[in-house]
Amino acid sequence: MTPMIDVVFLLIIFFMVVSKFASAEHVPMELPQPERSQARQVKLRDRVIINCQAAETPAGPQVLYRVGPNPPEVLEQISSRLARAQAAARAEGRELIVVLRADRRLPFAEVRAALEVVRENEIEQLRLVALVGEGE
């Protein structure tokens, strides 16, 4: 019995170490995968994640915009969320960073609509999310 328990514990420790629990903010989607990607994994403070998700609905493909883990919203609601986050960050003397995660198949017009919202709120710090390159 002892060797079996050893093996099982080893497996558990292996999975505990390699598991990265998916954050609810990172809605699963197909992210852009540029060749020789320059994307870097960095920890950002004061960031708001905008997810632009391509969803297949019976009525055809649709874009779902959501701020972090929140349910999908229309862009006006997202704009007001950004305005509040921006005001809170400015009150503490910091700059808000918007991280844009968009499905790679989305037409640019749909993503640009989200970018317009960022611009309207006078947020200058923007980050685009892409997959990190192989071996980088």
């Binding site: 995968q33 990607s37 870097r40």
Partner: peptide, 30 residues
Amino acid sequence: PMIDVTFLLLIFFLLTTTFQRAEGVLGANL
């Protein structure tokens, strides 16, 4: 009971683990 719990944990990790490419950010100052 310990083996029961251990196997439950093992199955949990087997099911929840997804091996995924890491995502990063491209800097973009407007």
